[in-house]
């Protein structure tokens, strides 16, 4: 059965790119525009993985990761964060919050899929 991945990003273009890439690779995608949207959409849905941006309005990526990890159902779900070269401290925070791994923007669709494969096989 196809695995479900939640993508969280406030940038429409990046979201579109993520969704397009993931769907082409055969994953189901749940789309969220920021952390708050993501948390409402999670709502006990069966999710195999979360890909989230860090800088987002409302609930940002770090807070989202902490929230997800605090939810028993998603305690062990892999979370990949989208980071940039210019904010290394964000990555450290994200890791502390419980992120599984990261992808540095900008990235190519192939790199994204390689990381997903690495994390959920």
């Amino acid at each position: 059965m196809a695995k479900t991945i939640m993508t969280v990003d406030d940038s429409t273009s990046i979201r579109e790119m993520l969704i397009c890439t993931l769907k082409q690779a055969g994953y189901n995608v749940i789309e969220a525009v920021d952390g708050r949207d993501a948390l409402t959409k999670l709502n006990d849905a069966k999710i195999h993985m979360v890909i989230t941006d860090l800088n987002m309005p409302n609930v940002d990526g770090i807070a989202l990761i902490e929230e997800i990890r605090a939810t028993p159902a998603y305690k062990f779900v892999p979370i990949i964060m989208l980071t940039t070269e210019s904010h290394p401290e964000k990555k450290v925070q994200g890791k502390q919050a419980g992120a599984t791994g990261w992808i540095v923007k900008p990235f190519e669709p192939d790199q994204l899929l390689a990381v997903i494969k690495k994390v959920i096989g």
């Binding site: 290394p88 990555k91 790199q111 390689a114």
Partner: peptide, 14 residues
Amino acid sequence: AEESEEPATPSDSP
């Protein structure tokens, strides 16, 4: 224009 020493995205290509 600070430079970052962070490792690049992992597993970029096989």
